[in-house]
Amino acid sequence: MVTQNNHIKILHLAPTTSAFAVLEENGQAVACALGVVNNGYCGIFDLMTRQQFRNQGYGTRLLKQMLS
Rank of each mutant, 00 (worst) to 15 (best):
V36G: 06
E24T: 10
H7F: 09
Q56L: 01
Q4D: 07
F20Y: 06
L63N: 09
T49Q: 04
G59R: 11
N39K: 14
G40I: 03
N6M: 09
I10P: 00
T49C: 03
A21D: 06
H12C: 13
N55I: 02
G35S: 08
M66E: 02
Q51C: 08
F20K: 00
F45G: 04
C42L: 14
Q4M: 02
N39G: 09
F53Q: 03
G43E: 04
G43Y: 08
A14S: 11
F45Q: 02
T17D: 14
V30C: 07
C42Y: 11
N6K: 01
E25I: 12
M1Y: 10
I8W: 06
M66S: 05
T3D: 00
T3I: 05
E25L: 13
F53T: 02
L11S: 07
Y58C: 02
H7S: 05
M48K: 14
C42F: 08
I10N: 10
V30L: 03
G43M: 08
F45M: 10
A31G: 05
L34R: 06
L13Y: 13
R61N: 14
E24R: 02
L34G: 06
R54Q: 14
F53M: 03
L62F: 03
C42Q: 13
V22A: 10
S18W: 00
A31Y: 06
L11Y: 08
N39T: 15
N5P: 01
N6P: 00
Q65C: 11
C32R: 15
A33D: 13
E24Q: 02
S18D: 00
A31P: 01
R54G: 07
V2H: 04
N6V: 02
A33T: 11
L13A: 13
L63P: 04
T3V: 00
G43I: 07
A31I: 05
S68L: 12
Q4L: 03
P15I: 04
E25F: 12
N6C: 01
Q56W: 02
V37W: 15
G59F: 05
P15R: 12
G27T: 05
G59V: 02
A19D: 09
K9P: 01
K9S: 10
F20H: 03
A33I: 14
I8E: 11
G57W: 03
A33H: 09
Q65D: 14
L67I: 03
M1W: 10
A21W: 01
A21P: 01
L47K: 01
M48C: 13
G57A: 10
G59N: 01
A29D: 13
R50M: 12
G43K: 12
I44L: 08
T3P: 04
E24G: 00
I44A: 04
A29E: 13
A33C: 12
A19K: 07
N5Y: 01
N38S: 15
A29F: 00
N38F: 15
N55E: 08
K64A: 13
L62C: 03
G43D: 08
S68N: 15
Y58A: 02
Q65I: 15
I8T: 07
L63T: 13
R54C: 09
A21H: 06
Q4A: 07
K64I: 00
A21Y: 07
V2W: 00
E24M: 01
V2T: 11
G57T: 12
N39M: 14
M1V: 10
A29Q: 11
G35N: 03
G57Y: 08
N38L: 15
V22N: 07
L13P: 04
Q65V: 15
